[in-house]
Design a protein around this nucleic acid. Structure first.
Ligand code: ZN
Ligand code: ZN
Ligand code: ZN
Ligand code: ZN
Lengths: 135, 135
DNA sequence: TACATAGTGTTATATTATAACAATCTAAAT
DNA sequence: ATTTAGATTGTTATAATATAACACTATGTA
């Protein structure tokens, strides 16, 4: 898996949008991001999507595909933008990035019957978080 | 993981839409499905989405989240709609459902640090298929 | 300077998905 | 056969997500 270093210098729009996502306790959707940064001069969807694309590319944030939402990478050992795993609570929608050495090793080495070699994966687990299990 | 039996009797719309997806060599998008079934009397997006929702629920088709597209389940040993894995070629967009006993066992038994128990997962691998590797 | 590359601002538009409501069908249960 | 509950349908309208196209600006570097 290709290593993506995260020490990019962010541009103004990228920084504004990253800061917002990074502070958010939950994944943010593009138009919610747009609404929240309009006071900072980012007025159009495209400005948001362009920043999001770049932030995803360099691994500062990840997209939760099943939710069309974006979360900051809080996986300290995660130097890659292309090997991601999340747990998602189906009640409260809490999303957590999973950092398991065992899991990432297993998936990075997984080979299917066709011998296709993978350069990237995304895994989303669904269930109930602790809080929601107790309710 | 809850077992979803697939021996549902499909309604007219569900059958029309399943047949179309099942014959397609590649994942189909909702509005492409709509276009293709208009001659059969299905005229509105909602009719398509409702059938898709049901077909996903009963495990006859799966949604490829990263592509917003739908593929028929061709995994003969797959009796569940909630434990899915796919390989996706980033050039030709060929999608294959992975049926690996090892993989599904590993993921079904995976537990994260928080002890969250999962009821469902979706895994998407990305890379180059054999054909595209040779080009 | 000259050039290439990446980022920006803007308008318009494409694509994906759901809300709301009335009508109809289906499968039991009386 | 009649009632009832639930799922499904048909329809119009609208919401939510994402990209095309184009002119312009910043930044690094040769
Ligand atoms: Zn990460
Ligand atoms: Zn929860
Ligand atoms: Zn399947
Ligand atoms: Zn390919």
């Amino acid at each position: 898996m290709k290593i993506m270093h995260k020490e990019h210098i962010l541009t103004k729009n990228q920084q504004i949008i990253f800061d917002l996502i990074d502070k958010s306790p939950e994944p943010m959707k593009a138009y919610s991001i747009l609404f929240n940064v309009q006071k900072k001069g980012i007025k159009a969807p495209l400005q948001v999507y362009r920043a999001l694309d770049k932030l995803v590319e360099i691994g500062k944030i990840h997209k939760i595909e099943s939710r069309n939402a974006f979360i900051a990478c809080h996986n300290s050992s995660c130097q890659v933008a292309n090997a991601t795993a999340f747990s998602i609570c189906e009640i409260c929608e809490k999303v957590t990035e999973i950092s398991s050495v065992g899991l990432s090793k297993y998936l990075a080495n997984f080979k299917d019957k066709d011998g296709m070699k993978y350069s990237k994966y995304n895994l989303e687990f669904f269930g109930l978080c602790k809080k929601c299990t107790l309710k």
